[in-house]
Design a protein around this nucleic acid. Structure first.
Lengths: 248, 248
DNA sequence: GCGGATTGTTGTGCATTATACAACGCAGCG
DNA sequence: CGCTGCGTTGTATAATGCACAACAATCCGC
């Protein structure tokens, strides 16, 4: 009995509220969780009391409350990696003209925790807070390839014809990624989007995140990838150096 | 008995984790909430299972988990006001050279939900997710002055010598704010920082947020404030027009 | 404007559940 | 090597949250 039922249910409700773009009714919540309407009502009321949910005055339906933004802020502002990475992300944008991202490992997925946008009108942005699969993004592959403790994902869902879906092929691909020190996503997650990323290590040599750039395949030709990779690698190495001096 | 105890305790734990910059121990959590260590342990374990908390491997202490960032993202990206306001914030930065912000009312405070930074090296940034008091910020005063339903804050804490701490004085000040249609913060919250803000209304004429600019007192001289106010007012009015056509 | 249907909220008894107390394993440290 | 402080794990008890049901409120078509 290591899981508090009502807390778990409350968290699940928040996730349901987050997943749906429109406000959700009590009945829908109850049906989705397989619990009674009255339980769902009281749980979501408790969430509302503390600002984690709020009900639309007109429709009586519930949506996520503003309190979650506060939690998010205090997490992001207290992340030393994020502060340290910011100038390097800016540098990457300056040198490559593409958008730069920082991601960490969260729940066996890549969580984008910061982004610097390029000035190009055609650009590839991935909002802060996005979760992306590990096996088909450059940032994710870095986390996957350089982190020892992480288990390979069991399912390899396909997003484009180029997505690597064979476990053996992925293993070889990650092997190559390790050798060259950086990862490439060649239109494996989004059509027409290529990414290059490199891992960031802490003082113990453990992967704590990855930084990289994303751009349209047109500007990020395969012949230019090695150049981009070098730029990203340089930034990631310098950032890793910085991170060696602070803990966590 | 409309409040589910264990869910409420879990939420309080998240707030404690968010409030503390360093990881928190189980004992501290238990003491802070006035509950037993074992209860705190199981609650925070449940949070950890779902990614809302995570424990530092070395110290066994707990900090906020990455899942909260996801929740925040889905809230912010589904906020029509935020999308609609973005170009106006950019416009404000272009026209004034100062940082522009968008805030909404949350838990009787001003919650900053978006920001566009200026290029100036000396600039006043307020991170997305920040909560600020209503009575001493320009954005907050807008929410306070133009929202009928909201009660005046009971306590008026002072942050600088200029903070308005007398309820009667605040009432008069808000009256003037209503008349002129915009609010001014003249170094009442941060030394050397002045802000100008104007309210945003929806199709029913209800306040749904406020936009404004913040800058160092040096550049935002009192003689220039009327000009800035006009620029902010124009943007807020146009944004309100846009918001009239979509609900919520 | 009105009846029917759907939805959200409010009692209440019961049983599940979360809780407090205590014991245990495990570090760090003198 | 024993001590102390910490986090986790049993366990019994009782408080708590749950399902069922009735109620209130809203929306729908006609």
């Amino acid at each position: 009995m290591s899981e508090i039922q009502s807390l778990a249910r409350g968290l699940k409700i928040m996730e349901l509220l987050a997943a749906s773009s429109d406000p959700v009714s009590i009945t829908e919540l109850a049906a989705e969780l397989g619990i009674d309407k009255s339980s769902a009502s009281r749980l979501v009321q408790t969430l509302a009391i503390y600002g984690y949910a709020e009900q639309d005055a007109a429709s009586r339906r519930y949506r996520l409350g503003p309190q979650v933004v506060r939690l998010s802020r205090s997490l992001l502002t207290r992340m030393p990696l994020r502060d340290a990475a910011k100038p390097f992300l800016r540098q990457l944008v300056e040198r490559t003209g593409e958008c730069a991202h920082l991601a960490i490992l969260a729940q066996d997925q890549a969580l984008y925790v910061d982004q610097v946008e390029s000035a190009a009108s055609l650009r590839v942005t991935t909002g802060v807070g996005t979760l992306a699969p590990l096996h088909c993004t450059a940032l994710g592959k870095c986390l996957l390839a350089f982190d020892n403790g992480i288990a390979s994902p069991q399912a390899l869902p396909s997003f484009t014809p180029r997505t690597i879906t064979d476990p053996q092929a992925l293993r070889l691909h990650l092997e190559q990624t390790r050798r060259q020190g950086y990862a490439v996503d060649d239109e494996e997650y989004d059509f027409g989007v290529r990414c290059v990323a490199a891992p960031v290590f802490d003082y113990r040599g453990k992967v704590i995140g990855a930084i990289g750039i994303s751009g349209p395949a047109g500007r990020m030709g395969l012949d230019r990838l090695p150049h981009f990779a070098q730029v990203v690698l340089d930034a990631a190495r310098e950032l890793s150096n910085r991170m060696s001096f602070q803990r966590a």
